[in-house]
């Protein structure tokens, strides 16, 4: 009885008794087969041994284990398959202080190409009609103001525009620049008139801040960069790299394109 298997104590006595009964040999004490209960030595009927009516815990345990494992694997697969997509919009809206103009001012966020200076309802703008050429947003850190009409086109392509008031201290500017330099779908520029030291823009979203140390800057970038695009797949390379407040004229744009082919 030193053998120890799962459910062995339940299983073994049945096996032992059935197989090991001297009287169980066929043709000796029960010539008529198993139909008549065998008599004991004192003529008293022997209680039939319940061979299969006891629970066979071994197989039950095994199949339960297999079942639990299978359910786990299927459940895991289903959870992965039905896992919801990353909700960048929900994450962005949860940033304290962010303004969602897509919700409040959807009508302002028009997307027609237009030449000449445009008027925008938001300052700095977060969307609206814009120049045919976008401002290059390959992590460009512009040291002078850029035309809104080009910046808005960059926002349409999914860029995050870090704007700061021209009087922001140099160390604060450097902190912002470190988040932007060389990172595509990012651009940064000063603005003369700004009601807060720092203003972050993505298409339809804005967050105004007092300090470059504010943790919400990284949140804004993480939630909205590329995700806020109106044209998935649109690029930030090429585009306008000139600063100033006047957008390129139609003639200038045509010259630019001809120059590219020459």
């Amino acid at each position: 009885m030193s053998i120890s298997t799962q459910g062995g104590e339940q299983h073994r006595p049945n096996v032992v008794k059935v197989g090991g009964k001297p009287g169980a040999k066929p043709g000796e004490k029960t010539p008529a087969g198993a139909k008549t209960p065998p008599k004991g030595p004192k003529g008293k009927p022997i209680t039939p041994i319940k061979v299969n009516q006891g629970r066979n815990w071994g197989p039950i345990a095994m199949f339960t284990a297999v079942g639990v494992l299978a359910a786990g694997i299927i459940g895991y697969g289903a959870w992965q398959a039905f896992k919801p997509p990353f909700d960048w919009e929900g994450a962005a809206k949860a940033i304290p202080g962010i303004v969602d103009y897509r919700e409040t001012n959807a009508a302002d966020l028009t997307r027609t190409h237009a030449y000449g200076t445009q008027t925008y309802k938001q300052s700095p703008p977060v969307g609206g009609n814009h120049n045919e050429v976008w401002q290059q947003c390959m992590g460009n850190v512009y040291d002078a103001p850029i035309p809104n009409e080009h910046a808005v086109h960059a926002l349409e392509h999914g860029a995050v525009w870090v704007a700061y008031r021209s009087d922001l201290p140099a160390d604060q500017v450097a902190k912002l620049a470190a988040k932007v330099t060389g990172k595509e779908y990012m651009l940064m520029s000063p603005i003369e008139k700004l009601d807060k030291p720092i203003s972050l823009q993505a298409w339809g979203f804005q967050l105004k801040l007092d300090s470059a140390d504010d943790k919400r800057i990284d949140d804004f970038i993480t939630d909205l960069r590329i995700n806020a695009t109106q044209e998935p797949g649109a690029v930030c390379s090429n585009g306008n790299t000139a600063t100033g407040v006047t957008p390129l004229t139609q003639e200038q744009v045509q010259q630019m394109m001809q120059g590219a082919n020459g």
Partner: peptide, 13 residues
């Protein structure tokens, strides 16, 4: 980019 969408992940980290 599509992988990241398929993997239900943010394009940014």
């Amino acid at each position: 980019r599509q992988w990241l969408r398929d993997w239900k992940l943010n394009v940014n980290s």
